[in-house]
Design a protein around this nucleic acid. Structure first.
Lengths: 151, 151
DNA sequence: CAAGCCTGGTTGCCATGGCAACCATCTTGC
DNA sequence: GCAAGATGGTTGCCATGGCAACCAGGCTTG
């Protein structure tokens, strides 16, 4: 009746630690970003736009880059537009397209939040991982991602 | 202006892979559980209760065990009660306490979903990790969790 | 070029989750 | 024994997210 009957004690420990990590690391990074008035999702959008030419991207491409469903992007961008973080305009060449762009306000926000976020990522992640461990982690992540995406 | 300016190329790759893993692995496990009519959160609650004596736990302890905010547990348990997965009763000794317990229906659901979930965890996680890699992972997780929880 | 299919986005509906306010009980310090 | 503070739960408000339905603008084919 134990739902994890086929995981041995060590695997159970490892899995619990993994689940805890997903929960607590996410929360820690969210708190960090919140100090700059951004959610994790906000930052994902802004970080992509900052790297894009002219600070704007087609909604379809933005969604694909972040790995989001188009509906999720649409709704989140609508909220961000309401907060003055992005603008939206029609794509000239395709009547369906929407071009999402940074506002100057967003540029300032990202300029402030970006370094803080990077610092948090270091503090909660990279600072705790030795180079050889990172190498192992990269290999494992690659396999997990391939399978989770693939099937 | 690059928000990740202080992460080098390799770190950026690793971080992107890590973020993708959180997103896609979570989604894969959620889809797996959904086939048994459960959300990840449902399963977390049920898995704890199944392991508890008499299949019931005090709400406070259940929340602590899962690592949830008391408000979150309260609301989720209310929804689960509505779906006939748990019962709630007052704690005799403490007028504030609520005891959350499994229904017999829930026991059947867990009996079916548990093995499937374990299989998914294997398929998407343990099967992709060699013993020596798991050792590294455990060490890293421990450090990350300590810091994410601690401060 | 017209019917039918494909694509890009938006919206509605519903389940989640965080946070703070609130209420009812304990518990503690005196 | 009681006032003040700590605990345990619930609720309201708001932001998120998934999924499917829907709609308008392309594209393909005969």
């Amino acid at each position: 009746m134990d739902p994890q009957q086929s995981l041995d004690a060590r695997e159970q420990r490892a899995w619990s630690a993994f689940v805890a990590m997903r929960r607590d690391l996410e929360a820690a990074l969210a708190r960090s970003l919140a100090r700059d008035g951004l959610s994790v999702s906000d930052f994902e959008v802004l970080a992509r736009l900052v790297q894009a030419p002219d600070g704007e991207m087609r909604a379809r491409d933005l969604a694909a880059a972040i790995g989001w469903d188009k509906a999720r992007l649409s709704k989140h961008v609508a909220r961000m537009a309401g907060r003055g973080l992005v603008t939206r305009r029609e794509a000239g060449d395709d009547g369906r397209g929407q071009i999402v762009g940074l506002t100057s306000h967003a540029e300032q926000v990202v300029a402030a939040a970006g370094p803080n976020h990077v610092a948090a990522v270091r503090r909660y992640f990279f600072d705790l991982i030795e180079p050889d461990e990172l190498e192992v982690l990269e290999r494992v992540l690659e396999r997990i991602n391939a399978r989770a995406r693939g099937s």
